[in-house]
Design a protein around this nucleic acid. Structure first.
Lengths: 216, 216, 216, 216
DNA sequence: CATGAATGAGTGTTCATTCAT
DNA sequence: GATGAATGAACACTCATTCAT
């Protein structure tokens, strides 16, 4: 084990070179690789740039990943893994509250999260080249998310709170505006920004209007 | 070695063919370029492959496009132009019928159209590199589409057919499930196919439930 | 900036282990290096593989050899040294018996010895890069071997047992089939194996027929 | 030897760039590649150097050979093909004359030919990596050569000119001194040159002494 | 002494672009 | 115009060598 002095980081001279643990290095490079892949896509990403951003030499990158492709896979996988549980958290209260909570979470953790946006972009861009990654995403993110929504719809229907709806078979429909918001930000954020708060409210209103049995 | 018939290709003197061959060539190359860009993305696309698919020599491509980037731009622009008007067609009948028609059109012309899917993929993938293209798409496709939906919503509200909804400010929400279906097909089509007909019905039901003032 | 304390480099106390370990390590590495160089040639040999086969870390190799080139030289030199005396052993009996003994030895110790074959291969392959090594081989192996044969030829001629022959000036000629057998094995051993015993007999018969004065 | 096109070379201005036929370019590069491979071996050979010697850009090399390995194979194959027939020429006169002719040819065309020496070096050096090439050499050069010698031995025996010898089973033995001379030149030419003429005479004398039935 | 992580110059190969015919 | 051979800059990846621990 190495004696890592936190103090020296702010020392008179940045010790750029390898002081960090192997795992830390791995993460450094992974983080740098994410940035580069997210910015340019797989093919246009340069290992040189990854190395530079990670603060290591080019060769060092290859001590941690056998090649560019595996590096890309590792990047996407590691990022997908991090968001899963956030979606399928607890399920308390009335069905409406529950569903609102899920949607709210989706916006907080997914739509507003620029990393997640980047993952989605990368998946869309490279799904031809790396279909397995889309698969992982489907299994780890989409399915859990859909199940959570479906559960809420069923519970609401059972409690006569929600009407019966085909959306039980396609819970994606409920979440779709969230995806649209993500894509919107990917494509138009600078020139045609979206008021996400108002958008989310409209989204929720739209969903609840569709589901609620009693009319106001 | 290739069996290349030299004779038929270039006549020794003014080739009798090709008056408008010029324009046709342009289109051939454009079509080939679309296929290649759609399949591989900008960076991984090979001019070689474009030329081969277009049935011309590599050098010829450069007679029609100054470089790869302009070629890409031309491809996307030409494709965007073609779909616009389909969405904003006539607006007859009841508001519900109108809206259903719009959604139905969206599925027929957009969601189910693999070219459009490819455009979306390319836009998502390359919007970092070519932001203007997203702009064009926004102007030519998104805005007209949103206006059409908004118009239907307003008309329905004016006729007391639809309830008042914030979705008027964000007509994207109504169409969002269509986008989701497109992305779904891009990412998961092979391994987790989507029953588009049932999905569209669920989508419509969901929308109409949300908008209709009278309950069934 | 690195804070390198020169003092700590010298261990605080003499390491009790490894007295002759030093020499043993040297040999381990040398043996491993031979295998690797023999298998791949100088340029294609990997220090990594040498270290692995020697059971040491890569850096350790550099404690015993300043660089790859010196390592190669050491390998070849050490191997050349080991075979010399075997050829020039005692010279008893009739000249024919003597010569037969020399040839027999050559097959037993040289032709059939895969290490020697590897040396020859390495010399042939790398003589352009390392001409001194060929020199050593010439001095330590070729010259002694030629002298032994020449001596036998002279003795046989003096005893009227052998006829006078120009081969005295080129004793290589007598041994040449042995070299051919080695090269044959290097190039064709797997697909076109050589029956070495029969070959050696034919070789001896051919030599003796050439040298003997009386005819059978 | 190359048939250098006379006319175009003396053009008004040395057109260094691609004027030559595709086939000619191929040969240029092949010739350059031979030089480089012969000088350094496969692994140490640099494509850069090949290109430079061929007077083309590095990329051009890859228009003619898909990769370094195929280039190497092509080099060796093309060289092997050129020498075959020279060995198995006509078979006139007495058996001794015939055999002397064969040996003489071997020295003139093989031993003294530096290209052939280089091939042998390359085969020895790289036979581990490219065993098929040794195979080709065996089939195209060794076997024909051995057959020619065997034929001469048989004919001589049938005519009672030569004695019966096991060398019929191993004609390599008769030619072995030629190989030794080649290897000698590869290894020792500069520092310990060989008087090839005297050597060849000694070789022939040695062979004839071994084969002739009548004694002088 | 030994280690093995880190380095970075160097190599094979690709590919957008040019240009002589 | 059309061709496709040629170019050379650029990139992924390797590996001998160094050095902090």
């Amino acid at each position: 084990m190495k004696i890592r002095s936190r103090v020296t980081d702010v020392g008179p001279h940045r010790s750029t070179r390898g002081r960090e643990t192997k795992a830390r290095r791995q993460e450094q490079i992974l983080a740098a690789a994410f940035e580069v892949f997210a910015a340019h896509g797989f093919e246009a990403a340069r290992i040189d740039e990854v190395a530079e951003r990670a603060g290591v030499a080019k060769g060092t990158v290859y001590l941690y990943f056998p090649n560019k492709e595996q590096m890309f896979r590792a990047v996407v996988r590691s990022l997908i893994r991090k968001r899963i549980d956030l979606l399928v958290k607890g399920l308390p209260g009335s069905s409406e509250e529950l569903l609102r909570g899920l949607i709210s979470q989706m916006y907080a953790n997914v739509v507003r999260n620029s990393k997640v946006r980047s993952i989605v972009r990368m998946l869309v861009a490279e799904s031809g080249r790396f279909p397995q990654l889309a698969d992982i995403y489907h299994r780890e993110v989409i399915i859990p998310g859909m199940n959570a929504v479906r559960e809420a719809l069923k519970r609401g229907a059972a409690a006569k709170e929600f009407r019966r709806t085909k959306a039980v078979d396609f819970p994606q429909i409920v979440a779709a505006p969230g995806l649209l918001a993500m894509v919107w930000q990917l494509l138009f954020s600078d020139r045609h920004p979206l008021d996400l708060s108002a958008y989310m409210q409209a989204h929720m209103e739209f969903v609840m209007n569709s589901l609620r049995r009693t009319k106001d």
